[in-house]
Design a protein around this nucleic acid. Structure first.
Lengths: 114, 114
DNA sequence: CAAAATACATTGCATAGCTATGTATTCTTT
DNA sequence: AAAGAATACATAGCTATGCAATGTATTTTG
């Protein structure tokens, strides 16, 4: 709220981190779109807009990192569940490795300056 | 290299993290542009392209988070040193707080899934 | 003397998040 | 029962940012 720079910055930080976040989220258990948004909001305080998530999941599918399947409900709107492909799992490991490096780098900077 | 998805992803992760990184870097000691690039590359393995840094520093100045001053050398090209403003220092604290939250959230996801 | 390094800078492209908007069904409240 | 909220999907257009390419100029190195 009311600090414009910080709000814009947070949105920029999400570019990149969101794909990492959702790939992690579906790595243990397949989830559907709406569930991804709600669960991530509840457990991490990271908010993903619907207009962000659905295009993001489509990109991940196009890149071959995730796949999806429709599941009909006995009652209610059908859900599209997302799951990691083998390639997605491999890339997730590379992303984790880079993320840890980045964390370390930033820790160094925030503690010591340079 | 050669993993296209990961390379593109790393570039996306930088959107947002770079401003955080350079603000941290100049928070302890004023630095000039070229020095920022070289020092950050050396101490953190994060590479910032020149075509990224100079527009970035100008944005930070326009937002009022950083200021700059030219320093003539006895020999060589003049250097433009960047330093944090009071507003920059305040915003950096807010950014640190958010970053720690993000780290925690991602740690939760990478360890437990959801 | 040529090449590399130092030091600044801009232009245009590609990418990704967000708001607004839309559709459709089901559940809750009045 | 009707109205509104919640569930569940999706797209279009705007905006912001990193990067390659390119440019200028000086100094150091081989």
């Amino acid at each position: 709220m009311n600090n414009e720079f910080i709000e814009k910055w947070k949105s920029q930080v999400k570019k990149g981190t969101l794909s990492f976040i959702v790939l992690n989220a579906i790595s243990k258990k397949e989830l559907y779109g709406y569930e991804l948004i709600e669960t991530i909001k509840r457990t991490t305080a990271i908010e993903i807009a619907e207009g962000t998530l659905y295009p993001l999941m489509n990109r991940l599918k196009k890149e071959g990192l995730a796949s999806s399947k429709w599941v009909e409900q006995e009652s209610g709107i059908p859900r599209k569940y997302y799951l990691l492909t083998k390639e997605g799992r491999e890339n997730l490991e590379l992303m984790k490795a880079y993320w840890y490096e980045l964390e370390k780098s930033i820790k160094k900077l925030t503690n010591n300056g340079i």
